[in-house]
């Protein structure tokens, strides 16, 4: 099945699954059972809200069929956007009912006089509110990613279970066989996804462990972990892709991080793979430097759609900021091994010369392949006669070849840099279809 067909199928299936409860609800009603427009609209908002909540996990459970089309980062972004959409529907559900005379006290889960049906509804409502607030304000609240990730999963499970129990106990539509079968089926699919994500996938990773061969200190305080497969054939990936690196005691550990592969996709017989990590968070600052050769780690991947293998062109323009060089380094190394003679212009922005990760490697590659290297330093050292400041349209125009508009552009780096560079590329009339980036700074 082609990517476009799979994309349309996935989009259609998603919308259908969200609307299906309304179809079943409408079909199972007998004439004269309606409760008025606003009450029924509120009920519909509740059903749609619950269906979105149930489908949220599917978006981030790394299902290759879908992740391979849109990219896991796009699915995570979509998960976030649908998180806001579900908030609107779930908020509308009680609000419309309150306007029709339902007492506001129903939202208090601690009121003893309420039946459990309302209490579950209130827990689901406040649980979702807490979930959205923690995700939206994680950085402002200074919550670590690891802590947030665990609590996000727990609160989501509690909110969804409470909302489902609320629907079951309300009766009315949900007392009918069609609705009961439908929600049971959704619950079963969700359960299967959780089992696959939390049990089967880690078990598969456990059968394919990796050993840390080297933990190399790079420029800019970055670290490169070189891994060797233990009794398996390693990982086949496209240059530019990433994998979830799990450094816990077992692959069941929550502590896993999406890291770009920095080594060549054509590693040959030794099957080694490398990940380069900059100390930007608790895990990368405290855990990564302490990983010793001989340690066992686990990988889930490969994922990602940022790759010259996917978007072929007569030439490539790569734009990196800081540690964003890692997937682009993998691309350059791979293309060099493949004797690819297409032109590559690599713009690499860093704070200063000492922060340029892989600079010796890149300079070596420049001699081996059709690679033009342009360093752009924010704070250049004394005597620096190269580019400095920010990557602007003017700088790009000066360095790009004449036919750059047909080239494929890959951007990787901090969000601010990627946003700015995309705008500069638009000033140069580079079509959006030629600009590729991957974003993980979503929460």
């Amino acid at each position: 099945m082609s990517g476009l067909v799979r994309g349309i199928f996935s989009f259609g299936a998603y919308v259908f699954l969200l609307l299906f409860p309304l179809i079943i609800g409408a079909l199972s009603r007998h004439p004269g059972q309606g409760r008025g427009f606003w009450v029924e609209f509120a009920v519909a908002c509740g059903y749609v809200g619950l269906a979105i909540m149930a489908a949220q996990f599917a978006l981030v459970s790394r299902v290759q069929f879908v992740a391979g089309i849109f990219g896991q980062d796009a699915l995570q972004h979509f998960h976030k956007q649908m998180g806001y959409a579900v908030t609107v529907f779930v908020l509308a559900h009680p609000m419309l009912l309150f306007l029709r005379g339902l007492p506001w006290g129903m939202l208090n889960p601690f009121t003893l006089e309420h039946h459990w049906v309302w209490r579950f509804g209130a827990i689901g409502f406040w649980g979702l509110g807490l979930l959205v607030c923690l995700a939206a304000f994680r950085k402002r609240l200074k919550l670590s990613y690891e802590w947030w990730h665990v609590t996000h999963a727990i609160i989501a499970a509690v909110a969804l279970s409470s909302a489902l129990l609320h629907v079951y106990l309300v009766g009315y539509d949900s007392s009918r066989a069609g609705m009961r079968v439908l929600w049971s089926l959704y619950l079963l699919i969700l359960f299967a996804l959780v089992v696959r994500y939390r049990i089967l996938r880690p078990l598969e990773m456990w059968r394919k462990p990796w050993e840390v061969v080297e933990n190399i200190t790079e420029h800019g305080n970055a670290r490169t972990l070189v891994l060797h497969p233990i009794d398996h054939h390693g990982l086949r990936f496209a240059p530019g892709q990433f994998a979830w690196l799990n450094t816990g005691k077992t692959p069941f550990h929550f502590d896993q991080h999406p890291i770009s592969i920095s080594s060549s996709a054509e590693s040959g017989a030794n099957c080694q793979i490398a990940f380069t990590i900059k100390p930007l968070g608790d895990w990368s600052r405290e855990v990564v430097p302490e990983i010793k050769p001989g340690a066992r780690v686990w990988l889930d991947g490969p994922y990602g759609v940022l790759s010259p293998d996917r978007d072929q062109g007569p030439g490539y323009v790569m734009i990196a900021g800081g540690v964003g060089i890692t997937p682009l380094h993998s691309m350059c190394e791979t293309l060099a091994i493949r004797d690819d003679c297409r032109p590559i212009i690599l713009f690499y922005a860093a704070h200063d010369y000492d922060e340029l990760i892989f600079r010796e490697d890149l300079e070596k590659l420049q001699k081996q392949m059709n690679l033009k290297l342009v360093y752009v330093l924010e704070k250049p050292n004394l005597g620096w006669d190269g580019e400095h400041g920010r990557i602007t349209a003017e700088l790009l125009r000066r360095r790009l070849p004449r036919h750059y508009k047909r080239f494929q552009f890959f951007i990787c780096g901090p969000t601010l840099l990627m946003d700015a560079v995309e705008q500069e590329l638009h000033k140069l009339d580079v079509g959006s279809e030629f600009i590729h980036s991957e974003r993980f700074d979503l929460v």
Partner: peptide, 30 residues
């Protein structure tokens, strides 16, 4: 670019779902 498409896809889906809610309410309101 992909993220912009994704945002618009989410908005489109939200509108479709709201329209679905409206149709449901109209068809069963009694």
């Amino acid at each position: 670019m992909r993220m912009v498409v994704v945002t618009w896809a989410a908005i489109l889906i939200a509108v479709l779902l709201a329209a679905g809610c409206l149709l449901f309410a109209i068809s069963v309101k009694g």
